[in-house]
Design a protein around this nucleic acid. Structure first.
Lengths: 238, 238
DNA sequence: TTTATGGGATGACTCTTATCAGAATAGCAG
DNA sequence: CTGCTATTCTGATAAGAGTCATCCCATAAA
């Protein structure tokens, strides 16, 4: 996984093909942005953006994974969504003063930052780029609203399934099984919107039912179909 | 509230100043859209869009109010959001095949429909329009993600406050009190993500505490500040 | 090897919320 | 006004989820 400094720094040589900039901006703009962007490496557990901090621009994940979290009452944390290579962070804060969320790397990640002015110019001169980003928002919104319903209507068992399938949808790009989840119990619980004790109980049930396996505390999804069935009455998103 | 047919049908003569089209499209496009849009009147409880139906375009609320609902398990309904004059319906479905939600008028409403092709052309030739709509999505997303946290972490009491303040933010544009809410207990419960019995109990409490008044089943918010205090630890959105 | 440490699992208990049943009230037709 | 229906309110009970305490197991340090 070693990449040369050269590869990391120039958009033209970047191998991340699912980047929004590369896909939808004109060559002229790709070159411009390439000069103005800042690419940084974040280690696991390192904060990429802090809730409450001033919004200065957008982050694009060149490589790696991150979780987007929002702090609640009494130290509770909600994992709002999971992100991977090609995803965008900070777009919710775009247009307002302060980030409503924090973002934390869940593995070593390479992330490109583009400041507000540059990105605004890119929007104004690349309608397709703006359009595609709007579509990205639209998709995020659908997922987000599905999750509102999940939180409101699912029981803990269903919430756990939802969270596991969420991890799978975001991180198992090759859709191959068994697929192991790298998140801690705490993270999964925060994603499901329940506590770790309940999560443990439900996971034990699923383990007994042969839906998942656990070795060295690492959860593996064995059968996506059986899991999906548990929440199928709610419909599927994406 | 009687409007002439002429006023209703031409964008140039439309008095709804908070319309996205009027605010952000070129005059040329406003005229074009004006010819291609279809404006319809929906009565209270009438469906504007059906969950599962094919997405044909976007709806703009010229006048009136609507609720956006999503069906869940066992006949449960989630009120995903409330909309008023100037808001957009169907934008979540934009870009996919089928509407993930239904929209229902909650009072007589006049709604403009613009088909996919027309709106796509408008996007491509009016970057500012696309940009502003993207900002609209961004704002909706923030609100939506705040609601995920609400559903996951608030107790019923807090959820009721959240729902009441939501009604207030959407429908009390003049910000004057007492403000009366026109929704049924069922709608408010579906918005809060709780059942009607719990809602009744909490409303009775609030009534006893002098936070709201109820006459002829119509809820009036007397003191927004005291209500806000109940959920202030969660922060405020928008 | 032993011993600490931290994440995870499990049991007992409590509290909140949903459900069910029934009473009160509002709205409406005759 | 009277009766009918739908909505809302209230109480009793049960189910579900959260909390607290403890135990287990893996890893790392001594």
């Amino acid at each position: 996984m070693v990449r040369s400094k050269f590869e990391e720094n120039s958009c033209n040589n970047c191998s991340t093909t699912d980047c929004f900039i590369k896909q939808h901006c004109s060559n002229e703009y790709i070159t411009l942005i390439s000069d103005l962007k800042k690419t940084s490496i974040y280690r696991e557990h390192q904060y990429i953006a802090y809730e409450g901090n001033t919004v200065l621009g957008l982050f694009f994940i060149q490589r790696g994974k991150a979780k987007v979290i929002s702090s609640g009452l009494a130290g509770k944390t909600q994992v709002v969504r999971l992100t991977k290579q090609g995803d965008i962070i900070g777009h919710r804060g775009y247009g307002i003063e302060k980030y409503p969320i924090s973002a934390v790397a869940i593995e070593e990640s390479s992330i490109c930052f583009i400041d507000n002015d540059t990105i605004y110019k890119a929007f104004m001169e690349n309608p397709e780029f703006t359009y595609e980003l709007m579509m990205y928002y639209s998709k995020e919104l659908r997922k987000s609203e599905f999750k509102i319903k999940s939180q409101a209507q699912m029981n803990v068992r269903e919430k756990v399934v939802d969270a596991l399938l969420n991890c799978n949808a975001h991180f198992n790009s090759s859709n191959s099984y068994p697929f192991s989840i790298q998140l801690s119990r705490q993270d999964i619980a925060d994603l499901a919107g329940i506590n770790t004790e309940q999560l443990s109980r439900i996971l034990s049930e699923f383990k007994a039912d042969g839906l998942i396996s656990v070795s060295k505390n690492e959860i593996s999804i064995l059968n996506k179909e059986f899991l999906s069935e548990i929440i199928s009455p709610f419909g599927i998103v994406e």
